[in-house]
Design a protein around this nucleic acid. Structure first.
Lengths: 356, 356
DNA sequence: CTGTTAGCGCATTCAC
DNA sequence: GTGAATGCGCTAACAG
């Protein structure tokens, strides 16, 4: 398997058949030592201008490209950032991954991104892969990462590197959080519906993520605060068998069916996600229930989907792009040795469109 | 900067404060040499069962995790795959990246994915980053990578590693292609519209990608073949200033305005993408033009968006997920030393829904 | 200003 | 069966 690198010994020709040119090749060609070449490559001072130029020229001539892994081995710095998401196909996750990758790349880091799926033990496996790759920092996107199994895995594998939790909290010295106040945001949605005259509100969710639970709490708080009687019968959970992106819509439809059976007099619905809301909308329309005429509808996430449906969806923007960008910047700050706050909170905003 | 690793010399305690345990640490603890530990880790034969078990136990006890980069330096294998996409936020690109990442991860590779943006010189830069990371294979997603600048960059940087082109062609010995017959597919769309009685067809596109050009060719061929007079006035290009995902819809609306001015009697529109079609649909509805009553509308891509709008969009499914999966598998075959076809073609399928 | 030496963590010959 | 020696490509400390 090993290719004996004769050129290095004989000083003969190389640069063909997949042989990589190394700093030694360049050094030999330039009649200097490898360290000198290394210094030129890394723009270190203390090199005669003539030498620098000569080596620079050879580097280009031979199309030299540094092996970052080898460099990392010597410097103990891989310049890798790990990103874990449950499913990158979910549109606000896509947005997050995109924003983070752009920022990290801009700053000279390379991102390794994995879609882990919902299973916690799988998440732990991916954390181990990141450990093996010796990432210098990690960003976990989504509240579903804030659980004990992930926590244990982090303590075990990544105790010494900074970890950013996007929309989740974890009490660990190396774990930082960027949060978004979905709870208060959802409460504001209730307020808005009440002000529009709604009296029978329902919160529809599917997967019981910490995030969705927070929204639920905000919903309940809103009911109390704005004078509506609370009660378990105002919370509905759609079955979550199908985990594909399209599944959300289906769940929205099914959840709405159930909901309408229990609370036929409903006049305001808040859905945990936009896609759920769109499923809901489809079911309502199918039954001839006017939106927003008879029922006001609000989604959460501010996805593109919400702009496309008719009527356009009023939605709670949880600003995933901004939140993710903040997380990326915080991580960069930590890596640069700057002190940062361990927790940060950003604020949601209601995007008023036609459905409410 | 360097942490003198005293434990290795003194044989003292370690495992705290970010010091990674190496095979040498384990070896010392077990009273064997590093080679033996290495053999155990890599499940090589020729180790006494007792020794193996003892070392195995220590490995777990000390939470040993191999440094893959160091291993790669020794074996000349990084197990990295590079993926380049113009914009991962575009839904069928997301799907592609997802599918490929899942398959590669399953097979022990780690993906490095970049969103390059449309600019060719930027694409070349990203190719260089992949080279620096010593990826073992590369997948370029989208026809926009099939241009001369990228080609030169590949020849220069990645001449010795397999490159898969998803939906694009390039005549280079190490470049493989998985294609999708969008040309014939679009032709079939024309046929379908003609059979529905349409007589004034228009093709609306935005960015002039090789892929969109192919669709255009298919459109023209269809016109000829199915007895409609061709002509430049049947092709419309929407302005493409805004490159955000939402921009597509806006372009669809604007393009439709122009189109209606020139060909007010249009009764069938094929759009180069679903999002474009949705913008088109919005504009038509705004003007009170019935779809599919007065105008039949077909999109391309089979995105989730097409299922959400009203009426649901008839669309040409270009099977990006399958195409991407095939590309991933082909690449794995090449990496495993199996011979594969350098080109492969998959087939589109029309998804009939309400808009046509 | 530059070369020599050593070592990053690991896998692999070749001895024993 | 196992160990010692060597090298992967690169950087960094220390001399000169």
């Amino acid at each position: 398997m090993f290719f004996l690198k004769l050129p290095a010994i004989i000083g003969a020709e190389n640069e063909e058949g997949g042989i990589r040119v190394t700093i030694y090749d360049i050094a030999r060609e330039a009649g200097v030592s490898a360290s000198t070449v290394s210094r030129v490559i890394n723009h270190k001072p203390g090199i005669r201008e003539e030498t620098r130029r000569r080596i620079q020229k050879l580097l280009e001539e031979y199309d030299y490209t540094p092996d970052i892994a080898a460099r990392g081995l010597a410097t103990q710095a891989t310049r890798f950032i790990g990103i874990l998401i449950e499913d990158i196909r979910v549109s606000h996750h896509t947005e997050s991954a995109y924003v983070i990758e752009q920022e990290m790349t801009r700053r000279g880091y390379t991102c390794i991104t994995f879609s882990t799926g919902p299973d916690s033990s799988r998440k732990a496996q991916y954390i181990q892969i990141l450990e093996q790759r010796r990432v210098e920092g990690v960003i976990l996107i989504g509240s579903m990462f804030a659980n004990d199994e992930v926590r244990r895995s982090l303590e075990r594998c990544l105790a010494d590197i900074p970890v950013m939790l996007v929309n989740g909290e974890m009490d660990l010295p190396n774990v930082y959080s960027v949060l978004i106040d979905e709870e208060r945001g959802t409460e504001e949605c209730v307020k808005m519906l009440v002000e529009k005259g709604c009296r029978r509100l329902v919160y529809l969710m599917d997967v019981t993520t910490p995030s969705n639970i927070k929204k639920q709490r905000g919903f309940c708080t809103g009911l109390l605060r704005y004078g509506l009687e609370a009660g378990e019968n105002r919370i509905f959970t759609a079955p979550d068998a199908d985990t594909s992106p399209g599944g959300s819509i289906r769940r929205g439809r099914q959840g709405t069916c159930r909901l309408l059976e229990s609370v036929p007099e409903v006049d305001g619905i808040i859905c945990a996600t936009d896609l759920l809301a769109i499923g809901c909308l489809q079911e309502l329309q199918k039954r001839g229930i006017a939106v927003p005429g008879q029922v006001s509808l609000i989604g959460i996430d501010n996805t593109l989907y919400g702009q496309l449906c008719t009527p356009a969806l009023t939605t709670l923007d949880n600003k995933m792009a901004q939140v993710s960008l903040s997380a990326a910047r915080m991580l960069l700050d930590v890596l640069d040795g700057r002190t940062v706050n361990q927790k940060l909170m950003l604020f949601t905003e209601i995007i008023r469109r036609e459905s409410a």
